[in-house]
Amino acid sequence: MQVYKELAEIIRREQVAEDIYRLTVKAPDIAAASKPGQFVMVRTGEGLDPLLRRPFSVHQVAEGGMVQILFKVIGKGTQALANMEVGRKLDVLGPIGRGFTIADDSQHFLVGGGIGIAPLFFLARRILKKSEAFSIRVLLGARTKDEIAALADDFKGMGLVVDTITEDGSLGKQGLVTDLMADLQQEKPVMIYGCGPYPMLRAVAKTCRENSWGCQVSLETMMACGLAACLGCAVLRADMKGYVHACKDGPVFDADDVAWL
């Protein structure tokens, strides 16, 4: 697999919501090679602390060799990235891993929650690029409105049908994203593409299995290298007899291939 290392100039930094940022960097090789669901490993500074690169899904690629990442500030690495000035160069490795496989069906269902939905934008664009006749429905869940409102608007801006649900009822219905999935019964989905926190993905995978719907999920693990060398990114296989590795066999997995603990 061809992985590129680029010193990518930061072209734009946007604050999307309270703790959520979008960085646009110029990385032509990575932009050209990326597929939805793949990710990049980013150095968040030049020093030795934090030491390791941080993984981020490719959020979107754009004209002129641009790559975007969308991230939430949760610790020192993401904080450093949020503070990066336009014009600085970011050390980025990518594209890494196995992304989503777009199903041969006219209807596509993107299901996600929280910041995990970052790669779904890229996926949506590639689905539409494959055929303009394809339709996409986006189901988004979150704890509360602030986590998701701006991103839901971005999807709407792409002309997609978006249903939202929040645990506190502050946006859309009150409940979990799997409650929204109950409405999909009549549509008989061929493929659900899921991104988000692990407990949500487990529930999504279960709903899909019960209904015999196809399901691909993007999983997050701790990662040191992203190059299939450290073997740190282990994910238990469905047969519980060994591990697959998120940076090589994933991060997108068929939900039936992994164990749900």
Partner: peptide, 10 residues
């Protein structure tokens, strides 16, 4: 097969 995750901490 190695150890269960998490296998890494910074």
């Amino acid at each position: 097969q190695g150890n269960p995750p998490p296998r890494i901490a910074e």
